[in-house]
């Protein structure tokens, strides 16, 4: 245990020294911003002259613009960048094993993501579509000045009532009330999914599979590879469907077909695996680029720190 602790301490010290070195010597991990002022004219019907309002905006600029006038170091964003780097390393630390740092990042993640989804749904759906239709005048004066709905649409009381019933589930008793909106939710899903799946995934898929088994060219010549391809596709679809056939035992010819079917499925899964690997590596590359480029300034693929 002792050498391990020593090893860790050493690693931490070296890593920390490297970070401080990078930060002090190169300024790595700093973010620069610029204040932008936008002047907007508002036309006031009562006033003759248009009123001018100045809006303040803060824009992030690449580090090589840091000596330009008006550009300053942003403490908020710099702090954020280091928080982001800490979060990244915190999650990666799970690869070593469960540890307090991972647990803290996990807790932050769970909490902030739940609130995030709630805030976004509130502003985009509840305010705009529910309140916008029930209280158009109030919304126009406060949250959505551009709203065009004139009269309150009382039909929207239905989802409002259902929403309250759904939230009733959080109450200690009377949870059955929430079954009504739940039934609406499930019934609607069942209804539109049934149609969508049957059209796009059933009839259209059959239609897509109907093809000539023997392909001839424009001059009437026999096209071997195209024919083989078509036969393989149609045959493979049929044997795979046989594998998913549950009403008969898989013996005899049916058994053979089903066995061919499972092979086709395995080839399919192999292809899927290959494709998935590709995606996952890209995600890792994305994270590493963040650490090396944005945070540590070790690489500069976008040329944001040239001449520095």
């Amino acid at each position: 245990m002792k050498p391990q602790t020593l090893g860790w301490t050493l690693l931490m010290v070296v890593g920390g020294a490297f970070l401080i070195g990078r930060a002090v010597l190169t300024g790595a991990g700093t973010v620069y911003v610029q204040d932008v002022e936008i002047e907007v004219e508002i036309e006031d019907e009562a006033e003759e002259e248009a009123q001018v309002v100045t809006l303040q905006r803060v824009e992030q600029v690449p580090p090589n613009a840091r000596s330009e006038p008006g550009v300053r170091l942003s403490y908020v964003h710099t702090f954020g960048l280091w928080v982001a780097a800490a979060c990244t390393l915190g999650i990666f630390s799970f690869l070593w094993g469960d540890n307090p740092l991972y647990k803290v990042t996990e807790a932050i993640f769970v909490g902030s993501s739940a609130a995030y989804a709630m805030v976004v749904a509130f502003w985009s759906e509840l305010v705009q579509n529910l309140c916008g239709n029930l209280l158009p005048d109030l919304m126009r004066e406060t949250l959505i000045p551009g709203l065009k709905v004139e009269e309150p649409n009382l039909w929207y009381l239905v989802p409002l009532v259902m929403a309250i019933m759904l939230l009733w589930r959080l109450m200690p008793s009377g949870g059955w009330i929430s079954r009504w909106p739940l039934a609406f939710f499930i019934g609607a899903t069942a209804g539109f999914r049934m149609m969508g799946y049957l059209e796009a995934d059933f009839t259209q898929q059959i239609s897509n599979t109907i093809m000539p088994l023997i392909v001839t060219g424009a001059d009437g010549s026999f096209q071997f590879w195209a024919s083989l391809k078509n036969m393989t596709i149609v045959g493979s679809v049929l044997v795979c469907l046989t594998y998913f056939f549950f009403s008969v035992e898989h013996t005899g010819p049916v058994g053979w077909a089903a066995r061919l079917g499972i092979w086709v499925l395995m080839i399919t899964f192999g292809a899927s695996f290959g494709y998935t690997v590709m995606g996952r590596i890209a995600l890792l590359a994305g994270r590493l680029e963040f650490l090396f480029d944005d945070w540590l300034w070790l690489i500069d693929p976008l040329g944001r720190r040239l001449d520095m």
């Binding site: 059209e199 796009a200 897509n208 292809a271 494709y275 998935t276």
Partner: peptide
């Protein structure tokens, strides 16, 4: 399912590696 097939709207997709293989049955129709 809900837009391009029932209403014949031309669609192209860019997707993650994991979902690309199961979208192949929709190509090119």
């Amino acid at each position: 399912l809900y837009a391009s097939t029932p209403y014949n709207i031309e669609t192209v997709a860019g997707c993650t590696g994991v979902s690309a293989p199961y979208l192949y049955p929709y190509y090119p129709e």
